[in-house]
């Protein structure tokens, strides 16, 4: 191993001196970094919009006791997961009402069908959760794997450095240091890739949990409103009699 001369290697020096193994490692890490940052950018946009619109949705919905102009609200704030929950629930509710509402025992039958509505909303919710949490798994994988990949490159580089010293009478610091410093670049790369991924993964998981909590609360709120609608239609029916 020829020790590097005093000429400063600059930023790209370790990459230029890296062996083929380290190079492949670095390329894989760069690809991971590009993919994870793409996910971060996308999630920032989609999750940011979803939580903003959810806040607006909840403040618009307020203490509403009737479904009222639900379609308008859902249309305006369609990026909020609550909108698809609302649309799925109301669609099921309307379908049931169309089927059983006109009969004599309609309202009572509808009371029994409440679980159907809840299930329809749950299905919508699980679709929304999948959308929210989609590709977060890649960030998690990056967080776990990137440091190990970096470490692998470093260990291999150090191994090669020491193997070249075999048979050398007096191994000097000058002969060991360049090899080791070049080997360390993969560990640095691994951490540079993993740290932002870990940071954003935890941030997005927090956001996703927040949205999931909102969805759960809204689901029970909506079920309550629907019950109320059924009961009030029952009362009106009795009044009519």
């Amino acid at each position: 191993m020829v020790p590097t001369t005093g000429a400063s290697p600059g930023f790209l020096g370790p990459f230029i001196h890296a062996g083929p193994f380290a190079l492949v490692d670095v390329i894989a890490l760069v690809l991971m970094s590009v993919a994870s940052w793409a996910i971060v950018l996308r999630k920032f946009r989609t999750l940011g919009r979803a939580s903003r619109q959810t806040r607006q949705f909840l403040s618009t919905w307020g203490l509403r006791t009737r479904l009222g102009d639900y379609e308008q609200v859902a249309q305006r704030l369609r990026h909020s997961p609550l909108s698809s929950l609302l649309l799925a629930g109301v669609k099921e509710f309307n379908a049931l009402r169309a089927e059983f509402g006109n009969s004599q025992a309609g309202p009572e039958l509808l009371q029994h069908m409440i679980p159907n509505i809840t299930e329809a909303m749950e299905r919508a919710a699980s679709r929304e959760v999948a959308k929210i949490e989609g590709s977060l798994a890649f960030l998690s994988i990056t967080t776990m794997v990137a440091p190990f990949m970096g470490l692998l490159g470093t260990v291999q580089g150090v191994l090669v450095t020491f193997m070249t010293l075999r048979g050398t009478q007096i191994p000097t610091l000058q002969t060991i240091a360049p090899g080791i410093s070049d080997a360390l670049i993969t560990a640095v790369m691994g951490l540079v890739v993993a740290i932002p991924a870990a940071l954003f993964y935890n941030y997005f998981v927090g956001k996703a949990h927040e949205l999931e909590g909102d969805m759960e609360r809204f689901e029970s709120e909506l079920t309550g409103i629907m019950r109320r609608e059924i009961v009030s239609s029952q009362v009106e029916q009795r009044k009519g009699q």
């Binding site: 760069v30 970094s33 590009v34 993919a35 940052w37 793409a38 950018l41 996308r42």
Partner: peptide
């Protein structure tokens, strides 16, 4: 998603 990939790639470059 493609736009995000391109953005991310451009950022890295």
């Amino acid at each position: 998603m493609r736009r995000d990939f391109l953005l991310s790639f451009a950022g890295h470059v």
